[in-house]
Design a protein around this nucleic acid. Structure first.
Lengths: 246, 246
DNA sequence: CCATAGTCCTTGCAGTGTATAGTGTTTTTA
DNA sequence: TAAAAACACTATACACTGCAAGGACTATGG
């Protein structure tokens, strides 16, 4: 039997699924709403894209509508809910055809598509992700991935770990790609400086960390390193899943 | 030639490596310091462990020493630096013997050890990680992993993707494990409630997302699910790395 | 028709990081 | 040895945050 249906939670879920069969909270009595939830989310996302997630505040969003911060609350409930709604809203899944050539190709297509979304909205990497939660758009991604694994007869026991690895890897590589992107326009000076300072202060760094030192320097072709890393990782995973057998 | 050695960056690096050959800033003229950087970091970590990273503030730390917030700054520079120092300080690598039985076992030992560290300090998952940065303790982990890959003759081209996947997977699984842990003491009520609300509001959820629905429910044996997921993932990866051949 | 539930808006509070200025202490330099 | 510079500490202040509380207004349901 259902626990007393905590109104806030229900309202949040309604808002999350507002384009998939639910309507936002309920019979609206008061004055007509002057704002629109989708529009609020769009401007929140725009701010996050341009100035980072930290620049998203109830005030900064409301300011774009020449209103004060509290107008936002009737539309989203709390700041945390607002961020969750932005997260799902920004995660709309594009459409593509699953490659039928190999599992590796199909996984690659999925991963690349998700990578692209994360690149468009780098702040998504700062948001938590858990398999069980979230809204319809994030749900779409998971379902699609599971369908691919099913199509290629990946044994059920291997699916949860595969899902975890894929999501984790996409998020990680997208995160570093976004960090590189930011350096591009901000200077990369500090990054380099820190590395130099470390080398200067720890003269035997190369002896202490020979393996790390032996890695190809990140600076070389750094721009597409994350994407290449992702491709390599997906390839590895596909190999493992294929050889796991049915 | 070195750019003018930005004093703040250099000081931060010195602090990071203070136990590995550098000394904290240096010619100190003024009055003796009454606090100790390691002690500051310990209390910051204690607060983060107990109340979450959000509860860590210059004021909350200083209060434990009956001082006001600004005392912290001579020791750490900025809040961001403080967090970075806490991050490295909390990442001390334990010692263990590399299994010689198989690559899979060796990787598993590494991953489990790191997982354990993240479980002890769940807030570490909220901190960014990038291969090129950080302090000595985090460096140790990377070096150790690379040594394992080298020992087992994993081809150099496969190493960066493997590193990325391993770190990403450990962080992701540790993050969900920590989330479960939190639910334990906080109720898990909200989580369940949200799931129920979604099912109630989207009656055809199971038709729309058959694959997701088909997954074993997370609630069953949820406590060790993340650890098991990590083990499975590492196993998959080891299979791929082995069959990649030299 | 009126109570109610909703939006909109202002005010205010507790909390954040940190700039600044002042005071006292220690070490370095002249 | 005296002066000066660099530091630790303290208190105050500023700009910023999320949001509770409450007032004014408005559309709706009983």
């Amino acid at each position: 039997m259902a626990v007393e249906p905590n109104r806030d939670v229900e309202a949040h879920v309604r808002r999350l699924w507002r384009h998939r069969g639910t309507t936002v909270p309920t019979p609206r009595r008061g004055p007509r709403q002057q704002l629109d939830l989708d529009e609020i989310l769009r401007t929140g996302i725009a701010i996050a894209d341009a100035e980072g997630l930290a620049a998203v505040s109830t005030r900064s969003i409301a300011a774009r509508f020449d209103k004060s911060s509290m107008v936002i609350y009737p539309y989203v409930g709390t700041k945390e809910n607002l961020l969750a709604l932005m997260q799902d809203h920004a995660s709309a899944m594009p459409s593509w055809d699953d490659p039928v050539t190999s599992l590796a190709d199909a996984l690659h297509a999925w991963a690349e598509a998700l990578f692209e979304v994360y690149l468009s909205h780098p702040w998504l990497t700062e948001r938590p992700w858990s398999q069980a939660s979230q809204g319809p758009n994030e749900q779409d991604w998971l379902e699609r991935l599971l369908r691919v694994l099913d199509t290629w007869a990946v044994p059920p026991s291997a699916r949860p770990p595969a899902v975890t690895m894929l999501y984790a890897t996409v998020r990680a590589t997208a995160g570093t790609a976004a960090a590189y992107e930011r350096m591009n326009q901000q200077g990369m000076a500090e990054w380099r400086e820190r590395a130099e300072a470390t080398m200067a202060l720890i003269p035997d760094f190369r002896q202490r960390y020979p393996m790390t030192t032996g890695l190809e320097p990140v600076t070389a072709r750094w721009k597409d390193a994350p994407r290449a890393g992702l491709a390599g990782a997906v390839h590895l995973l596909a190999v493992a899943l294929s050889s796991a057998g049915p």
